[in-house]
Design a protein around this nucleic acid. Structure first.
Lengths: 337, 337
DNA sequence: TTTATTTACGCAAACGTTTTCAGTAGGCGG
DNA sequence: CCGCCTACTGAAAACGTTTGCGTAAATAAA
């Protein structure tokens, strides 16, 4: 049971290792006849080049890392789909890491990745991340990084997002057009840039339409869903005047639904809800949920493409660049239909 | 800007490469004092060992591959979550590959993985896969494989599933208890073992309760959702006597909902529906969907644990072994409450 | 014919790590 | 003083691949 590697192939073909290697990489330095012989034997023996030897020698891993908070979330699942597609097309492999929105884990993951395991990194930062030293240090390790969705303003590199500000603005405007006067905003932990942009859209929309800004109507979600349900319940009980909810993240919209059902608030009669969401089943909810739907697959795919272009050109540091893909607002019954 | 590797560390410390390597791996052959010096410098310079050099030398990649049909599916998303957790705990990395239920892709992926990129493989087979040569050949490459959910009966190895037969039986029984007499079964492409088990449960439940078996009520889903909607519409129009639907895969339950809404069939008054599903929002659908919910996270985590144990022991081939984790039936309004 | 040039291949050195095998020094009993 | 053991360290050979350089033969240019 001799191993099937360049050496064994070379011996059987009475060629040197170098020639076999070159033949398999289709080098012009090898005659067509020889290439044919080599390829024939290689495929007969099911030769697969050792990825690690190749990576070590060429200092290229043909692998990208994807660091995201979670995967059990339709947005990220779709994004991974797009990433995998782009990677596959370019012959790259995809390593997945979940931070669970934990800063320590994020740091630890990034630190490990500097060992050369990946040629580049795609990332959506954890909501708890405030210090970006671990990300800065990637540049020293010559690893390009592209942020998607949850970008990091402090790092100058390429970023792919959706039009968070406009989407927040539109969603709020949509609620106002439906007659809402007291609109709550449920947002994700507020040190995330996307939360800030969406929130700014919400604020500006209110102001533009002459509604007062009331910070008491703004709620930051936490990690735990049950806790979010409690928080929303408290909010709705404390402020019975709330007649509209803008949830800028899917989980919070779902939690808001639960609370409304529980408290007997009718949607959309008593309270209207719109949420950022990629849920396929949004149209089947009771009632169908109006959504701002992000082009998650495209965001993932474009982020990966940008990263891969940089990797191929060995550009460790990407120019500050923002690609913004528009979200779509689907008006359904939860905002009056 | 000298690279920070064993060689540079050794030079700065006036030690040999060997000693530095041993110190970092906490070998007993190195004095505590030396270890301390080495560790101090290593962490000061943020030394990260080159994963590829290490993998090449030790013939161990500390990486497992996960090959699944898709990720934009709550079951697989949760499974990945469990897999990542188990892998992280053991210091392993996770490579993700999506087959999109395409046999050719599955073969190509598996073939590439034999290059030593992974120490082991977790897999849910594509629905189109009929030939298993590519999987058999993994044994030659010394790569252990563990199947989860969509297992492959032809390969003898460890498998982690849910109790598909019993779940199909229970779901069907649940519909009958709710008064259904003409129960359709929407199942995933029928060469998958899980589809067969669930279907057998359905059949046996019907027989056990004296209902006739009618093959015209059994529908195999396809890849495209829109096409599934058409198929279901045809079925319901052709057989207006259908008063219960057992969808043994989430997508088909969602599609069934769409068709019922479209055709004006009331759920549960006219037709009752239960589906395999991991959708968090199932309880918020219109009406709340009764589900058979699989322990997706646990399935992923346990499959990974079994695989990792084998990998650590360098057991390339795992004993035939089945771990069955029970699903839970949640009765909601779609079957009468 | 001689001299360039091309073509086709081999040698050997990397890449960074792990590990086997030796080797040195000091301590200790005899 | 000799031999031996222990404790530490170093030299060097792997792992499988890629690639700069050298070289022989074959072909083209002069």
């Amino acid at each position: 049971m001799t191993p099937v590697n360049l050496k064994s192939l070379a011996e059987q073909l009475h060629l040197s290792i170098a020639t076999v290697s070159r033949a398999l990489r289709d080098s012009h330095e090898v005659s067509e006849a020889t290439k044919e012989r080599v390829r024939a034997l290689a495929s007969a023996l099911h030769y697969e080049p050792n990825a690690y030897a190749s990576s070590l020698r060429r200092n290229i891993s043909k692998t990208i890392g994807v660091v995201i908070p979670k995967v059990a979330n339709h947005f990220f699942a779709l994004a991974i789909n797009g990433i995998e597609e782009a990677a596959r097309q370019s012959g790259y492999h995809v390593l997945i890491y979940l931070t669970h929105d934990d800063y320590e884990r994020e740091v630890s993951i990034v630190q490990h990745l500097k060992g050369g395991r990946v040629d580049g990194l795609l990332m959506s930062v954890a909501s708890g991340t405030q210090d970006f030293a671990h990300l800065h240090s990637l540049k020293d390790a010559n690893i390009p990084i592209v942020f998607f969705d949850r970008v990091c303003a402090e790092i100058s590199t390429a970023k792919v997002t959706t039009n968070d500000y406009e989407s927040g603005y539109q969603a709020t405007e949509h609620l106002m057009a439906a007659g809402c006067q007291h609109i709550a905003h449920l947002l994700i932990s507020n040190n995330l840039s996307i939360g800030q942009y969406r929130h700014q859209g919400y604020l500006d929309a209110l102001t533009a339409h002459g509604l007062p800004i009331d910070e008491d109507l703004v709620m930051s979600g936490v990690m735990d869903n049950e806790q979010n349900v409690s928080l929303i319940r408290e909010l709705l009980l404390r402020r019975p005047d709330i007649d509209g909810i803008f949830a800028s993240v899917e989980r919070l919209a779902i939690s808001a639904y639960r609370v409304c059902h529980e408290l007997g608030r009718r949607i959309p009669e008593d309270i209207k809800i719109i949420g950022f969401s990629n849920l396929e089943a949004a149209a089947l909810l009771d009632p169908p949920l109006s959504t701002v739907t992000q082009p998650a697959y495209d965001i993932g795919r474009e982020a990966a493409r940008i990263l891969l272009r940089a990797v191929e050109k060995k550009k460790a540091v990407l120019p500050e660049q923002s690609l913004v893909l528009a979200s779509t607002l689907f008006a359904r019954q939860s905002t009056g239909g």
